[in-house]
Protein backbone atom coordinates (compact mmCIF):
# COMPACT_ATOMS: atom_id res chain seq x y z
CA UNK A 1 0.00 0.00 0.00
CA UNK A 2 1.34 3.40 -0.85
CA UNK A 3 1.46 5.79 2.10
CA UNK A 4 1.90 8.94 0.03
CA UNK A 5 1.29 9.47 -3.63
CA UNK A 6 1.56 12.78 -5.41
CA UNK A 7 0.41 13.43 -8.94
CA UNK A 8 1.49 16.45 -10.97
CA UNK A 9 2.13 18.60 -7.92
CA UNK A 10 3.07 22.15 -8.81
CA UNK A 11 3.67 25.24 -6.75
CA UNK A 12 4.18 28.84 -7.78
CA UNK A 13 5.25 31.76 -5.63
CA UNK A 14 4.01 34.58 -7.83
CA UNK A 15 5.80 34.01 -11.09
CA UNK A 16 8.44 31.78 -9.60
CA UNK A 17 7.69 28.15 -10.29
CA UNK A 18 9.18 26.18 -7.42
CA UNK A 19 7.60 22.82 -8.12
CA UNK A 20 6.71 21.60 -11.59
CA UNK A 21 4.92 18.34 -11.95
CA UNK A 22 6.29 16.32 -9.06
CA UNK A 23 5.17 12.66 -9.01
CA UNK A 24 6.28 10.48 -6.15
CA UNK A 25 5.00 7.36 -4.46
CA UNK A 26 6.10 6.36 -0.99
CA UNK A 27 5.37 2.78 0.04
CA UNK A 28 4.59 1.65 3.55
CA UNK A 29 7.75 1.32 5.65
CA UNK A 30 9.91 2.89 3.00
CA UNK A 31 12.66 5.40 3.88
CA UNK A 32 13.19 7.98 1.18
CA UNK A 33 15.86 10.65 1.17
CA UNK A 34 15.41 13.67 -1.03
CA UNK A 35 18.66 15.27 -2.08
CA UNK A 36 19.47 18.08 -4.45
CA UNK A 37 20.95 21.55 -4.77
CA UNK A 38 19.47 24.42 -2.81
CA UNK A 39 16.47 25.99 -4.48
CA UNK A 40 15.47 22.69 -5.97
CA UNK A 41 12.11 22.75 -4.18
CA UNK A 42 12.83 19.86 -1.80
CA UNK A 43 11.63 21.63 1.32
CA UNK A 44 8.66 23.16 -0.47
CA UNK A 45 7.63 19.71 -1.65
CA UNK A 46 7.87 18.28 1.84
CA UNK A 47 6.00 21.20 3.34
CA UNK A 48 3.21 20.98 0.77
CA UNK A 49 2.53 17.41 1.84
CA UNK A 50 1.18 18.54 5.20
CA UNK A 51 -0.19 21.84 3.93
CA UNK A 52 2.36 24.23 5.36
CA UNK A 53 2.52 25.37 1.76
CA UNK A 54 -0.60 25.28 -0.35
CA UNK A 55 0.12 23.78 -3.74
CA UNK A 56 -1.01 25.48 -6.92
CA UNK A 57 -2.05 22.30 -8.68
CA UNK A 58 -1.95 18.53 -8.44
CA UNK A 59 -3.25 15.71 -6.28
CA UNK A 60 -1.95 14.31 -3.02
CA UNK A 61 -3.08 10.92 -1.73
CA UNK A 62 -2.41 9.73 1.80
CA UNK A 63 -2.90 5.99 2.37
CA UNK A 64 -4.59 5.82 -1.04
CA UNK A 65 -7.21 8.34 0.03
CA UNK A 66 -7.46 11.66 -1.74
CA UNK A 67 -6.06 14.31 0.62
CA UNK A 68 -5.92 17.32 -1.64
CA UNK A 69 -6.79 18.09 -5.23
CA UNK A 70 -6.10 21.57 -6.54
CA UNK A 71 -5.92 23.08 -10.00
CA UNK A 72 -5.02 26.67 -10.88
CA UNK A 73 -4.71 27.59 -7.22
CA UNK A 74 -8.24 26.41 -6.43
CA UNK A 75 -9.34 23.36 -4.48
CA UNK A 76 -11.22 21.20 -6.97
CA UNK A 77 -12.53 18.36 -4.85
CA UNK A 78 -13.55 19.14 -1.33
CA UNK A 79 -12.75 16.55 1.27
CA UNK A 80 -14.69 15.89 4.46
CA UNK A 81 -13.12 18.01 7.21
CA UNK A 82 -12.89 15.25 9.79
CA UNK A 83 -11.29 12.90 7.30
CA UNK A 84 -8.89 15.59 6.15
CA UNK A 85 -7.82 16.20 9.72
CA UNK A 86 -7.41 12.48 10.36
CA UNK A 87 -5.19 12.12 7.28
CA UNK A 88 -3.23 15.18 8.34
CA UNK A 89 -2.51 13.55 11.69
CA UNK A 90 -0.97 10.57 9.91
CA UNK A 91 2.03 12.78 9.20
CA UNK A 92 4.51 14.03 11.75
CA UNK A 93 7.01 16.71 10.90
CA UNK A 94 10.47 17.65 12.12
CA UNK A 95 11.84 21.08 11.27
CA UNK A 96 15.30 22.39 10.59
CA UNK A 97 15.02 24.86 13.47
CA UNK A 98 13.26 22.43 15.87
CA UNK A 99 10.41 24.89 16.60
CA UNK A 100 9.96 23.57 20.10
CA UNK A 101 7.52 25.51 22.28
CA UNK A 102 9.88 27.48 24.50
CA UNK A 103 7.32 28.17 27.24
CA UNK A 104 6.63 24.48 27.85
CA UNK A 105 8.90 21.91 29.45
CA UNK A 106 10.16 19.02 27.37
CA UNK A 107 7.47 16.72 28.69
CA UNK A 108 4.77 19.35 28.13
CA UNK A 109 6.01 19.81 24.58
CA UNK A 110 5.35 16.15 23.97
CA UNK A 111 1.99 16.05 25.68
CA UNK A 112 0.46 19.30 24.44
CA UNK A 113 -0.74 18.17 21.01
CA UNK A 114 -2.12 14.76 22.04
CA UNK A 115 -4.02 16.43 24.86
CA UNK A 116 -5.41 19.39 22.89
CA UNK A 117 -5.87 17.82 19.46
CA UNK A 118 -6.86 14.29 20.40
CA UNK A 119 -8.46 15.30 23.67
CA UNK A 120 -6.60 12.67 25.67
CA UNK A 121 -6.06 13.05 29.39
CA UNK A 122 -2.67 13.63 30.92
CA UNK A 123 -2.75 10.19 32.50
CA UNK A 124 -3.21 8.61 29.09
CA UNK A 125 -0.47 10.56 27.39
CA UNK A 126 2.25 10.75 29.99
CA UNK A 127 3.45 7.10 29.83
CA UNK A 128 3.79 7.32 26.04
CA UNK A 129 5.59 10.65 26.29
CA UNK A 130 8.05 9.33 28.87
CA UNK A 131 8.67 6.20 26.81
CA UNK A 132 9.39 8.30 23.72
CA UNK A 133 11.79 10.48 25.70
CA UNK A 134 13.58 7.37 26.84
CA UNK A 135 13.82 6.16 23.28
CA UNK A 136 15.52 9.38 22.20
CA UNK A 137 17.67 9.16 25.33
CA UNK A 138 16.40 12.25 27.12
CA UNK A 139 14.30 10.95 30.02
CA UNK A 140 16.28 12.97 32.55
CA UNK A 141 15.49 16.20 30.68
CA UNK A 142 11.70 15.79 30.96
CA UNK A 143 11.21 18.80 33.21
CA UNK A 144 13.74 21.12 31.61
CA UNK A 145 12.77 24.03 29.41
CA UNK A 146 14.01 23.79 25.79
CA UNK A 147 16.32 26.78 26.27
CA UNK A 148 18.48 24.59 28.55
CA UNK A 149 19.05 21.95 25.84
CA UNK A 150 21.72 21.66 23.16
CA UNK A 151 20.73 21.71 19.49
CA UNK A 152 20.98 17.95 19.15
CA UNK A 153 18.87 17.41 22.24
CA UNK A 154 16.29 19.89 20.99
CA UNK A 155 16.01 18.05 17.68
CA UNK A 156 15.59 14.73 19.45
CA UNK A 157 12.82 16.26 21.56
CA UNK A 158 11.24 17.56 18.36
CA UNK A 159 11.28 14.06 16.89
CA UNK A 160 9.74 12.65 20.06
CA UNK A 161 7.12 15.40 19.99
CA UNK A 162 6.12 14.47 16.44
CA UNK A 163 6.04 10.78 17.40
CA UNK A 164 3.80 11.51 20.38
CA UNK A 165 0.95 12.02 17.91
CA UNK A 166 1.62 8.45 16.74
CA UNK A 167 1.88 9.25 13.04
CA UNK A 168 2.41 6.67 10.33
CA UNK A 169 4.62 8.89 8.23
CA UNK A 170 7.47 11.11 9.41
CA UNK A 171 8.60 14.09 7.38
CA UNK A 172 12.09 15.43 8.12
CA UNK A 173 12.97 18.85 6.75
CA UNK A 174 16.77 19.11 6.89
CA UNK A 175 16.81 17.97 10.52
CA UNK A 176 20.56 18.28 10.97
CA UNK A 177 21.34 21.42 8.97
CA UNK A 178 21.15 23.78 11.95
CA UNK A 179 23.31 21.59 14.20
CA UNK A 180 26.96 21.76 15.12
CA UNK A 181 28.78 18.91 13.35
CA UNK A 182 29.49 16.97 16.52
CA UNK A 183 25.77 16.92 17.39
CA UNK A 184 24.60 15.57 14.01
CA UNK A 185 25.35 11.96 14.94
CA UNK A 186 22.97 11.71 17.89
CA UNK A 187 20.05 12.89 15.77
CA UNK A 188 20.89 10.60 12.86
CA UNK A 189 21.10 7.68 15.27
CA UNK A 190 17.58 8.36 16.47
CA UNK A 191 16.39 8.54 12.88
CA UNK A 192 18.17 5.34 12.02
CA UNK A 193 16.53 3.57 14.92
CA UNK A 194 13.18 4.87 13.76
CA UNK A 195 13.82 3.55 10.27
CA UNK A 196 14.74 0.15 11.65
CA UNK A 197 11.42 0.06 13.51
CA UNK A 198 9.69 0.29 10.16
CA UNK A 199 8.49 3.89 10.14
CA UNK A 200 7.68 5.38 6.76
CA UNK A 201 10.07 8.31 6.44
CA UNK A 202 10.60 11.10 3.99
CA UNK A 203 13.78 13.10 4.62
CA UNK A 204 15.17 16.14 2.94
CA UNK A 205 18.82 15.92 3.87
CA UNK A 206 22.36 16.82 3.02
CA UNK A 207 23.78 13.87 4.94
CA UNK A 208 24.83 11.65 2.06
CA UNK A 209 26.27 9.03 4.41
CA UNK A 210 22.91 8.69 6.11
CA UNK A 211 21.09 8.54 2.79
CA UNK A 212 23.39 5.85 1.51
CA UNK A 213 23.17 3.75 4.66
CA UNK A 214 19.53 4.06 5.66
CA UNK A 215 17.46 5.05 2.65
CA UNK A 216 15.54 2.53 0.63
CA UNK A 217 15.35 4.98 -2.18
CA UNK A 218 17.08 8.26 -2.96
CA UNK A 219 15.29 10.98 -4.90
CA UNK A 220 17.31 13.65 -6.63
CA UNK A 221 15.42 16.89 -7.17
CA UNK A 222 16.49 19.94 -9.13
CA UNK A 223 14.64 22.89 -10.63
CA UNK A 224 11.33 21.78 -9.16
CA UNK A 225 11.20 18.32 -10.68
CA UNK A 226 12.44 14.87 -9.78
CA UNK A 227 15.45 14.32 -12.00
CA UNK A 228 16.29 10.85 -10.90
CA UNK A 229 15.33 8.27 -8.29
CA UNK A 230 16.58 4.86 -7.36
CA UNK A 231 18.42 2.68 -4.87
CA UNK A 232 21.13 4.60 -3.00
CA UNK A 233 24.01 2.64 -4.51
CA UNK A 234 22.67 3.25 -8.03
CA UNK A 235 22.35 6.97 -7.49
CA UNK A 236 25.62 7.42 -5.68
CA UNK A 237 27.81 5.10 -7.76
CA UNK A 238 26.17 5.22 -11.13
CA UNK A 239 24.01 8.31 -11.63
CA UNK A 240 22.30 8.53 -15.03
CA UNK A 241 21.30 12.17 -15.10
CA UNK A 242 23.90 14.84 -15.84
CA UNK A 243 22.56 17.12 -13.11
CA UNK A 244 22.90 14.32 -10.57
CA UNK A 245 26.48 13.70 -11.61
CA UNK A 246 27.27 17.37 -11.40
CA UNK A 247 25.67 17.65 -7.94
CA UNK A 248 27.37 14.59 -6.51
CA UNK A 249 30.71 15.72 -7.82
CA UNK A 250 30.34 19.11 -6.22
CA UNK A 251 29.61 17.73 -2.78
CA UNK A 252 31.86 14.69 -2.58
Amino acid sequence: MSMIRTEHVSKKFGHLEVLKDVNLTVENGEVICIIGPSGAGKSTFLRSLNQLEVITGGKIFIENELFLHREHDRTVESIDKEKHKALMLEMGMVFQHFNLFPHKTVLENLMLAPMTVKGLSQAEVEPLARRLLEEVGLSEKADEYPSKLSGGQKQRVAIARALAMQPKIMLFDEPTSALDPELVGEVLNVMKKLAEEGMTMLCVTHEMGFAREVADRVVFMADGIIMEEGKPEEIFTNPQNDRTKQFLQSIL
Binding site: N50, F95, T116, V117
Partner: peptide, 8 residues
Protein backbone atom coordinates in the same frame (compact mmCIF):
# COMPACT_ATOMS: atom_id res chain seq x y z
CA UNK B 1 4.13 25.81 11.60
CA UNK B 2 4.99 23.42 14.40
CA UNK B 3 1.50 23.81 15.87
CA UNK B 4 -0.11 23.29 12.48
CA UNK B 5 2.03 20.25 11.75
CA UNK B 6 0.84 18.78 15.04
CA UNK B 7 -2.76 19.30 13.89
CA UNK B 8 -3.66 22.14 16.22
Amino acid sequence: EAAKALGM
